[in-house]
């Protein structure tokens, strides 16, 4: 049963992420992106990573996507006032996209299909075990990434301030 649920949800994820790209209206794109993240939440639950599932739910679906929607509604993008993108920008976009594809294919080549990853501890995704891992062996990277996020936040606030007002 688990496998069929996985295939169903995976098909939905692919469908919704394609809809993100092919929607004409940016608001619809965001709404499809929200649905995509919801299917990711289901994937995490299937992997028994409950904490990750619920955090994905809160942070991505509940906070970041609300901000995306918020900004897009304020900008009110439509055909008439869409800025003309120069040819250079389009070429740069294509090159960047191709680089990403090459990287993804390169990393996927080393993984063979008949080689499923088996966790030593299948309950690793539960809050208790995850917390012990994060604050034990992965203490330094965890704290460093939190400092990185904090500095990005401080930087964003600083950029919004006018000069001489700091």
């Amino acid at each position: 049963m688990g496998t069929s649920v996985f295939y169903f949800v995976a098909a939905l994820s692919i469908l919704f992420s394609l809809m993100v790209i092919f929607s004409k209206n940016p608001i619809h794109s965001i709404l499809y992106l929200i649905l995509t993240f919801f299917t990711f939440t289901v994937h995490y639950v299937l992997l028994n990573a409950q904490f990750l599932a619920v955090v994905n739910f809160i942070v991505y679906m509940g906070a970041i996507m609300v901000l995306f929607l918020f900004v897009l509604m304020l900008l009110n993008l439509n055909k008439e006032n869409e800025p003309n993108k120069s040819a250079l920008l389009k070429i740069v976009g294509v090159i960047a996209g191709c680089c990403l594809i090459v990287t993804l294919i390169g990393s996927l080549k080393s993984v063979s299909l008949n080689d499923p990853l088996v966790l030593r501890n299948p309950n690793l995704g539960l809050v208790k075990n995850l917390g012990k891992e994060l604050f034990g062996p992965f203490m330094l990277p965890f704290e460093l990434s939190s400092i990185l996020l904090l500095s990005a936040m401080v930087g964003a606030v600083l950029l919004t301030k006018k000069e001489g007002n700091i």
Binding site: I34, Q50, F51, V54, V55, F57, I58, M61, G62, A63, V66, L69, F70, M73, L126, V127
Partner: peptide, 20 residues
């Protein structure tokens, strides 16, 4: 569920979509 409090928090954060 063993993340019940977080689930409630998630439901609260989704609540704004209907209005938006």
């Amino acid at each position: 569920i063993n993340v019940g409090v977080l689930y409630l928090f998630g439901v609260v954060s989704l609540g704004v979509y209907g209005v938006m």
